[in-house]
C-alpha cells in the first residue's frame, strides 16, 4: 500500500516534468516562429520601382519634367523619394537606376543610391539567396507629348538584410 502511494507520487512528479517540458517546447516553437522577421525586401523593391515608374510615366504619358534637364539632379524631390533608412544602417540601403531611350537614342541614364548593391543582382543561384540584396528590374513603354514611344528601364535594389533576415 505504502509502495503504491510512493509510486503514484513519483509518477505525478514525472507528469509535472513532462508538462513543463512540453510547455517549454511550445514556447520555443512560438518564439522561434515569431522571432524570425518577415522578409519584405522584394516587395519593398517592387514598391520603389512602382513609385519611380509613376514618377516617370503617369497614365501612359511621360512626365514632361524628364525633358527639363534637371530631372537627374532633382530626382528625389520630383519623385518624392527618400533613401535614408533606420539608424542601424550606416550605408544607403537602396539603389535605383533609370534608363529612358527612344529607338536607339538614350535620352536619360542615371543611377541613385548605393552602387555597391549592384553586385548582388544575378548571383542568386551561386550564393545563399537570403543574404543578398533583392533586385527588381522591369521595362515598359510610355508615350511622350509627340506621340513617340519611349522605352523605360528601371532597376531597384533593396538591401536591409539585417532587418529582414536572421
Amino acid at each position: 500500500m505504502i509502495n503504491k502511494k510512493g509510486a503514484e507520487k513519483v509518477l505525478s512528479v514525472y507528469w509535472f516534468a513532462i508538462i513543463v517540458l512540453v510547455a517549454t517546447g511550445i514556447f520555443i516553437m512560438v518564439y522561434n516562429f515569431y522571432n524570425y522577421p518577415y522578409d519584405v525586401r522584394e516587395i519593398e523593391a517592387n514598391i520603389l520601382l512602382n513609385n519611380v515608374a509613376d514618377c516617370v510615366s503617369r497614365g501612359g504619358i511621360i512626365n514632361s519634367e524628364i525633358f527639363s534637364g534637371n530631372f537627374e539632379n532633382d530626382f528625389f524631390s520630383i519623385c518624392r523619394l527618400n533613401f535614408s533608412a533606420e539608424e542601424t544602417f550606416e550605408e544607403t540601403q537602396y539603389y535605383v537606376s533609370l534608363n529612358l531611350s527612344n529607338a536607339s537614342l538614350i535620352i536619360l541614364d542615371f543611377e541613385k543610391g548605393n552602387k555597391n548593391l549592384i553586385s548582388s543582382c544575378g548571383l542568386e543561384k551561386d550564393v545563399e539567396k537570403n543574404n543578398l540584396a533583392k533586385c527588381v528590374q522591369r521595362e515598359f513603354y510610355s508615350v511622350g507629348s509627340n506621340s513617340q514611344s519611349y522605352l523605360i528601364k528601371i532597376l531597384t535594389i533593396v538591401r536591409k538584410t539585417e532587418k529582414n533576415v536572421n
Binding site: 524570425y36 522577421p37 518577415y38 522578409d39 519584405v40 522584394e42 516587395i43 517592387n46 512602382n50 515608374a53 509613376d54 510615366s57 497614365g59 501612359g60 504619358i61 537570403n130 522591369r138 515598359f140 513603354y141 510610355s142 508615350v143 506621340s147 513617340q148 514611344s149
Partner: peptide, 27 residues
C-alpha cells in the same frame, strides 16, 4: 516569412496598365 509578389495571386499590375494605356496613345 519571405514575402514577394509571387507569394499570392495578383490581378493588377501598374506597369502593365501603363503599357496598355501607352498602346492606345501611340500609333
Amino acid at each position: 516569412k519571405v514575402l514577394s509578389y509571387d507569394s499570392y495571386e495578383r490581378e493588377a499590375d501598374g506597369i502593365m496598365t501603363k503599357m496598355i494605356l501607352s498602346y492606345f496613345l501611340t500609333n
